[in-house]
Amino acid sequence: MPIDPAVALAAPARTTDLAWEQKDVILYHLGVGAGAQRPATDPDELRYTYEKDLQVLPSFVTVAGGGLAKAGAFNQPGLQINLAQVLHGGQRIELHRPIPAAGQAVLTSSLAAVYDKGKAAVLVMRSEAADADGPLYTCDTEIFVRGEGGFGGERGESTRIALPERAADFRREVPVRHDQALLYRLSGDWNPLHADPDFAKLAGFDRPILHGLCSYGVTLKAVVDTVLAGDASRVRSYSTRFAGIFFPGETLRVRIWQDGADRLLVSATSVERDDAPVLADTVVTYQP
């Protein structure tokens, strides 16, 4: 069978070296819209785009040093997958401490779980990074593989999160540049779906779509700027489900609900398409 859960889960973890510099962080921040919503030299934006006092948005870890691509999600025993059947279903990051603006780390990656959703299989790839000072961050990447379910495995727990019925406590609308995907792809995701109109049409879209992980970064920046006084180091974890597509040039509506002293519930939708969902089941935990 294309997926053999027992073999895949027993495969040894893989390690790879990561390295990043300040310019990588700045390029990533530009790729998720830093400097576009206020004057570029506003001090609140320069904290993302200028090496003096540069902070790191935690979602940067998805591209740091080559990012999740270096985890080699499908390059292991027990997985023979048609990439045309693969969807990025969800993403979670846990920060053990703030990410340095330049650094080196060792990334250790393994398959943490295989779930049987009936018509699809869900793989959970876990990547853990550590540097000379110890654990740095953990990423869980949820991958849907259509047509590979039905093997009799565990279904896994539901991650659906009901939003409060009250109006959001915070709200931010973020216009996304028409060239945002072209900027973001410079951080390492070269999929032509996000740049080539002809390729996008072959995939069933009228035009190129924005990277899901770009929407992920845009949303986290909106949360940090709106609720955490622009201090990205306060973020402790950030999880989401990719619920729909988003097109460059649209406006991302981010709604945020306070859920306890250190937890935020978030939704992200497209303003121009009647609040079509983009990110759902989204949670940010933080240092109060």
Rank of each mutant, 00 (worst) to 15 (best):
106 V>W: 03
126 R>C: 06
116 D>L: 08
225 D>I: 01
122 V>Q: 12
139 C>D: 12
117 K>N: 07
17 D>R: 15
142 E>H: 08
115 Y>P: 00
95 L>F: 07
11 A>H: 04
35 G>I: 00
62 T>Y: 10
79 L>S: 03
203 A>I: 04
256 I>H: 10
60 F>H: 01
134 G>Q: 05
138 T>C: 12
260 G>Y: 13
160 R>C: 08
46 L>H: 00
38 R>A: 12
217 G>R: 00
83 L>I: 14
234 R>D: 03
265 L>Q: 09
108 T>D: 08
86 V>F: 09
218 V>Q: 03
282 T>I: 07
64 A>G: 10
194 H>R: 04
225 D>N: 07
93 I>D: 05
130 A>N: 07
179 D>K: 05
118 G>N: 06
175 P>H: 06
23 K>S: 11
31 G>C: 02
240 T>H: 02
222 A>G: 13
104 Q>R: 12
118 G>Q: 08
81 I>Y: 04
57 L>R: 00
143 I>P: 05
122 V>M: 14
184 Y>V: 03
256 I>A: 12
183 L>P: 02
170 F>P: 12
186 L>R: 11
240 T>V: 14
17 D>P: 07
58 P>Q: 03
164 P>K: 14
104 Q>H: 09
87 L>I: 12
276 A>W: 07
56 V>C: 00
272 E>A: 14
16 T>G: 15
210 L>H: 05
263 R>C: 14
67 G>C: 10
192 P>M: 07
67 G>S: 13
195 A>R: 04
162 A>S: 15
4 D>A: 13
34 A>F: 00
76 Q>C: 09
20 W>A: 01
87 L>A: 05
99 I>C: 05
265 L>Y: 12
280 A>N: 07
135 P>V: 05
13 A>E: 15
81 I>P: 01
254 V>S: 10
196 D>A: 06
201 K>Q: 15
260 G>R: 13
105 A>G: 03
255 R>L: 14
176 V>H: 05
2 P>L: 08
232 A>K: 03
111 L>Q: 01
182 L>Q: 09
117 K>Q: 09
242 F>E: 04
133 D>K: 03
140 D>L: 14
107 L>W: 08
104 Q>S: 08
141 T>E: 08
173 E>M: 13
91 Q>L: 04
53 D>M: 00
227 V>G: 10
144 F>A: 10
260 G>S: 13
181 A>R: 00
13 A>Y: 09
233 S>L: 06
121 A>D: 02
283 V>P: 07
232 A>L: 01
267 S>N: 13
259 D>R: 14
199 F>W: 11
274 D>Y: 10
7 V>T: 15
184 Y>W: 02
68 L>K: 13
131 D>P: 02
68 L>F: 14
81 I>S: 06
236 R>C: 13
69 A>Q: 15
193 L>R: 03
211 H>V: 04
4 D>N: 15
197 P>G: 04
124 V>S: 02
43 P>G: 01
18 L>K: 06
224 V>C: 02
123 L>I: 03
27 L>T: 00
253 R>E: 14
75 N>C: 09
68 L>Y: 13
288 P>A: 15
43 P>R: 01
255 R>K: 15
131 D>G: 01
145 V>R: 05
124 V>L: 09
40 A>M: 11
8 A>S: 07
202 L>S: 14
127 S>Q: 14
245 I>G: 06
156 G>A: 10
31 G>M: 03
55 Q>K: 04
